[in-house]
Design a protein around this nucleic acid. Structure first.
Lengths: 186, 186
DNA sequence: CACTTTATGTCAGTCACTGTCATCAGTAGA
DNA sequence: TCTACTGATGACAGTGACTGACATAAAGTG
């Protein structure tokens, strides 16, 4: 018998999602989340750098999947195509947890502070994508612009995917639609 | 003789820029800024929604210039071209205050919290740009993607413009360079 | 000259977040 | 088995961002 119940981190994430959905982000204190998870406020801040981060626990994994896919693409694949393949791969990660992704996105959309943090995570994805492209030999500013474009496609595709009525379309279809609209621009 | 010295807002902005540059954002309290500007902390928060906003006072004007330019473009101009024209127009606004823009961008780059807020302002520019394009009859997802693309070009162009050695190139040249790299992607 | 509006000061309060120290289960080594 | 040592947690005090409520007085308005 261990001293503490296991998966305190997971309990805090679940508690935060519930409380944010029930009362909203601003009306929920860090202490509230901690109490529902059965820990102290101090423990909450040991796991999460700030109150917003509790909703963005998987963003590192997502970005990692994206860059792995880009780096694994054959060298002949053009920059934008490689980046878009990364986005599609990241999407399959989300698709496994659609219910969670939808609930989470509703909470984020309802809270300016969380929306702002989401933009930071997307920017981190842009940077990581650009780094991966540079590692493939793509020069700036092409690498940066391809990364921006691909993440914009991901962003638009994600927005359509989470708001689509059930049964949800495959995430890859949303990416393909947005990508073709992007290519039609110029 | 008036009761208060005029332009409290401008004094607070100047004081914040000085203090952030001297000691950094985190080591500067709202009270410090207020004191240097000759007001109280409460007055600071009456003018700025939070400590970060003091560095983003002109962002509304910038976005407004962008959308005005987009709406004023002839109807025959394609979506992406209209959006890029808006970005170039916004750039001329910055070019008038290059010294300020450069100092400000250094402070923002050195502070994660300010970088995050800047992303929010860019996202607001994306939304406003997309709205302007929709008002021109551009449908989604094309409007959203053209807006994202144009603001990405602005972002990349701005980054190159502020870090360019003197004499600085015209902002419009930076936009043109980034735009042609964007078009070369697909 | 009243009356209102506007920009500020004052003060108390909540809450996000941090530093520090104590506690104690589990683990590794003597 | 005894003894450090490690790691996750609790307890607690402190700083600073931000808010609400009320007071004040210059400047505008009739």
């Amino acid at each position: 018998m261990s001293r503490w119940k296991p998966d305190a981190r997971g309990r805090m994430i679940a508690a935060a999602m519930e409380l944010f959905a029930e009362r909203g982000f601003d009306a929920t204190t860090a202490g509230d989340i901690a109490a529902r998870a059965g820990v102290t406020e101090r423990t909450f801040f040991r796991h999460f750098a700030d109150k917003r981060e509790v909703l963005f626990d998987g963003s590192g994994t997502l970005t990692h999947t994206v860059t792995d896919t880009i780096l694994a693409a054959p060298a002949a694949v053009p920059a934008l195509d490689a980046a878009l393949a990364g986005m599609a791969a990241g999407g399959t990660l989300l698709a496994e947890l659609r219910e969670h992704a939808v609930r989470r996105s509703r909470i984020v959309a309802a809270t300016p502070a969380l929306h702002e943090r989401e933009l930071l995570k997307l920017a981190a994805m842009v940077d990581a994508t650009a780094d991966a492209l540079r590692a493939r030999g793509v020069a700036d500013p092409t690498a940066a612009l391809a990364a921006h474009s691909a993440v914009s496609v991901f962003h638009v595709a994600f927005g359509r995917w989470v708001t689509a009525p059930e049964p949800a379309p495959p995430f890859a279809d949303c990416v393909a639609d947005a990508a073709s609209a992007l290519r039609a621009l110029s």
